[in-house]
Design a protein around this nucleic acid. Structure first.
Lengths: 333, 333
DNA sequence: CTGAAAGCGCTAACAT
DNA sequence: ATGTTAGCGCTTTCAG
């Protein structure tokens, strides 16, 4: 915070006006004569007056600031959601402050509490894996009970009662798999997942399996799950080696898609005729650049936009309306 | 901000104590008897008291919060710097709030002013291209004059007098080029740049040229600059086509490296014997995954750490010391 | 050991 | 059209 800046009080003394006249002049109140307003403004400019928004927020009881908490900033999905949120808020005169929980539930709890401690009017959050997997929601429900508006996105916790933004994971996975089968004519598809314990991971896996079953007669589907990137890489390589008839990989999360690309790249450099279709949930720039890839575009920015919109609606109507869950549709690119 | 939470005043009434006794109890003051402290704490817990940090910060005159402004969150370099900063601050009991200027100088000015308006104790910023190119620094210098500590990183503005963190762009480019020549035995190297008007772009180009000149006898160097990704792609393709003896591309920024990869990938799929060495400044995950790539690792996290460190030093000593510029060394991977 | 009181900078209801 | 005043929730002297 600033060492010593010009304050209303200082200016009021210098101008021989009351603090409130100065305040009203600066905020353009119609109560004040044009002449005075001009005089005050000129003087304020002269002494580089910068209003202390912090004090104003404190007085008014709200900050026009929303807090965002995401688990991982290196995943472009979250970066894009951030852009969507910032954009919407910016247009509505709100500011955004962001913190990274780094997939640590402790950090998540800490930063949420801090932010809710007066710094923000509401919180948009994507919980950590741990939060979802262990159903540890007290830090979030506590804030909601206190009256802090919360919007959840991406990873959804059913035990938390608040506004939410999700994509239709099941449908997205189903349609993508179907697309691989019908348009790409693939017959032996491997699904790769690093998120099979997560709610959305399960839904995506289900979509995959059901799409396979719908074509049961002539398509094989295999599911590969792993807990670490290295484990997945290993399993993928092994599987591809053992079964050379595999003609497609469906990655249900960012890292899985990237591993699929890297594993098949290696294969390709050995056997140039090898052609394996890769599809999946991915936002990585470079992956987007790869024309042969089928990308499930989660519309990250739109998710952000919707989350921000829900948040501002909630703030404005407070307890007016029921909590709602917004489903953003995905595109296949 | 929260609707209505328990306050010190409410608790003091309920406990028949003064506000200050309650306040001191909660902050563990030694002035208060153990018994009273315990009583207050128990009661506070019972009514879910959450201190209003906002009010406390207002009163104390500082927020223990640092603001970060970066131009682009989709570039992993900045994302990594963010992680470095957050990590350091977290360990020092500081919070970080982040905003994305999205390469818009207006947004940059707006958000810096807002943040400095009492929300943060200092600002760490990487200016937009426009800010650097047009030498438009008044919004930054104004804040510095007011007493807001500012630390600049990556893109450096010589006309701004403050603490800075940079890498040795010249040396990094020189060494990388040298490495390509001596270790990779390349003889016809193209440098690709999308930042040739930026200060660090110029330095990197100079490093490249001087390294080429040092081997003038048997190495050719060509410089390709462009303003847009598409333009660069076009130029790269053209150049590679015209001159099949090109055996290396040196990308001096993220996007240039990615384009180099994508262009040569295409070549490779036509002519499998083709082998072009690619080197450059890049943080993209997938690029890191490509073992044949020579990455100039800018030590983004270390840059963040150093920036945060400088900031806290400045805050603690205020006007004590001279401004300094810290140079973070790079690694060749 | 506990309490009273001032005040951070600003806003807004209420005078004048 | 301008001024007075109370107070947001907390910390922090200073008194008792």
């Amino acid at each position: 915070m600033i060492q010593s800046r010009t304050t209303l009080s200082e200016m009021s003394k210098a101008l021989n006006l009351s603090i409130s006249t100065v305040s009203k002049s600066l905020s353009g109140s119609s109560e004040i004569s044009i002449k005075t307003k001009q005089r005050v403004r000129d003087f304020a400019k002269m002494c580089n007056y910068v209003p202390n928004n912090f004090a104003a927020s404190f007085r008014k009881g709200y900050t026009n600031t929303i807090g965002l908490i995401i688990p991982n900033i290196l995943n472009p999905f979250y970066a894009k959601v951030l852009l969507g949120i910032e954009n919407y808020l910016d247009n509505s005169g709100y500011k955004l402050i962001t913190s990274i929980s780094n997939e640590s539930i402790d950090k998540e709890a800490k930063v949420m509490t801090k932010m809710a401690g007066g710094y923000v009017d509401g919180l948009i959050v994507c919980v950590t894996q741990e939060t979802e997997l262990t159903n540890t929601y007290s830090h979030i429900n506590g804030l909601i009970d206190q009256g802090t508006p919360v919007v959840l996105f991406d990873r959804i916790c059913e035990k938390i009662n608040c506004d939410k933004v999700i994509i239709n994971d099941y449908k997205a996975a189903f349609n993508t798999t179907k697309h691989i089968i019908t348009h790409k004519k693939c017959k032996n598809i491997v699904m790769a997942s690093l998120i099979d314990k997560m709610q959305h991971g399960k839904l995506r896996a289900e979509g995959f399996k059901n799409a396979i079953e719908a074509h049961q007669s002539n398509v094989i589907g295999k599911v590969l799950v792993a807990n670490t990137v290295d484990e997945l890489k290993h399993k993928l390589n092994e599987t591809l080696q053992k079964d050379p008839t595999i003609d497609a990989i469906f990655g249900v999360n960012e890292q899985a898609v990237l591993q699929a690309i890297s594993c098949t790249d290696q294969l390709k450099s050995n056997d140039h005729s090898k052609q394996i279709t890769i599809a999946g949930f991915c936002n990585q720039y470079q992956a987007n650049n790869n024309p042969s890839l089928i990308i499930v575009d989660q519309n990250a920015e739109e998710i952000g936009t919707q989350a921000a919109k829900l948040m501002l609606q909630r703030i404005k109507n407070v307890e007016n309306s029921e909590y709602c869950t917004k489903t953003v549709s995905v595109n296949l690119n």
